[in-house]
Nucleic acid binder design. Structure first.
Lengths: 158, 158
DNA sequence: CCAATATAGTTGAGCATTCAATAGTTGCTA
DNA sequence: TAGCAACTATTGAATGCTCAACTATATTGG
């Protein structure tokens, strides 16, 4: 750290707007899902990823990567989902360390029931307020941010 | 709910990119602040708001509104910050129900120490990867989202 | 002026996430 | 093939957030 690069007024405005909008949006989504389906948004993402996987089944480590979870978090989350009977763990045949998470029929049904309300909320609070152009901009922006965040060491370090 | 409005491919791409980028970014920020200052990002925002207020002092309810916290969350947070001696509570003279949160000198010093590292992280992972134009777009987008989220009932309800 | 109601803030229980420590398994290499 | 490092996944403790219940004070309407 040589000299702090403070934010300009424009940058600060963008940062605060983004921060505030995101906090509000995530709170809204979490509340909706918690009320309608009894799970936090992170759990919903787990179910979605499993539902999109062949045989509705996936290695824990891969699922953790896809959902950007730590392994610890995923372990806890899957344990909770298993208690509800929405997911089950299966030993991995080829690697005895491994576990497969499998979305059960009950879990799939729960996801199908939760999806419309969730998507409607996303539509209402994320898509509807924006123009098509802004939605496209967000895709580019998100992808640019991800590219940087995935390679932590790709800029001048202190 | 009449008929679910699913997301188009473009919308889904934008939503997932935004979601993933934001999760990564927030995790990065939280980790940086937790390591360097020992507080989560939400606490940092509280300190910032207090530092910007006259006499570094503010009513709890106003502070909760500005930081988009529930009152409960703010109470817990201020209690923690008080344990460290960074904030103190003062009875409100004009309203005996009220409390004022006051940023102490130690708290201000802690904020001054934490700020450079935090701002640098925001710069590196949020400003630098984007063009000036994208930063401007994000300000508009954020503001549009906030406008909608603040008036929950301003669209067709189910 | 009093009762009813609204507001300010706190508290505790329950749940999710983080971090560090751990057990078991695999693979490399000497 | 023995030893060691790397990988997979889980666990428990500590911390923060949410929700609902609660206390205390202020305000409003009869």
């Amino acid at each position: 750290m040589t000299e702090t690069r403070w934010l300009t007024a424009d940058e600060q405005r963008a940062w605060r707007a983004y921060l505030e909008a995101t906090n509000l949006l995530f709170d809204t989504l979490d509340r909706q899902l918690q009320q309608d389906a009894g799970i936090p948004h992170g759990y919903y993402e787990i179910l979605v990823r499993l539902s999109e996987s062949p045989d509705r089944m996936m290695r824990m480590s891969r699922l953790a990567d896809l959902t950007r979870s730590s392994r610890s978090r995923l372990s806890h989350a899957v344990a909770r989902l298993e208690e509800r009977g929405w997911v089950e763990r299966i030993d991995c045949a080829s690697d005895r360390r491994g576990q497969l998470a499998h979305l059960t029929d009950r879990g799939f049904a729960a996801l199908e029931e939760a999806a419309p309300g969730h998507v409607e909320t996303v539509h209402k609070h994320f898509i509807d307020p924006l123009t098509d152009e802004q939605v496209a901009q967000l895709a580019s922006i998100g992808e640019a941010l991800i590219a940087r965040l995935e390679r932590p060491g790709s800029s001048r370090e202190s």
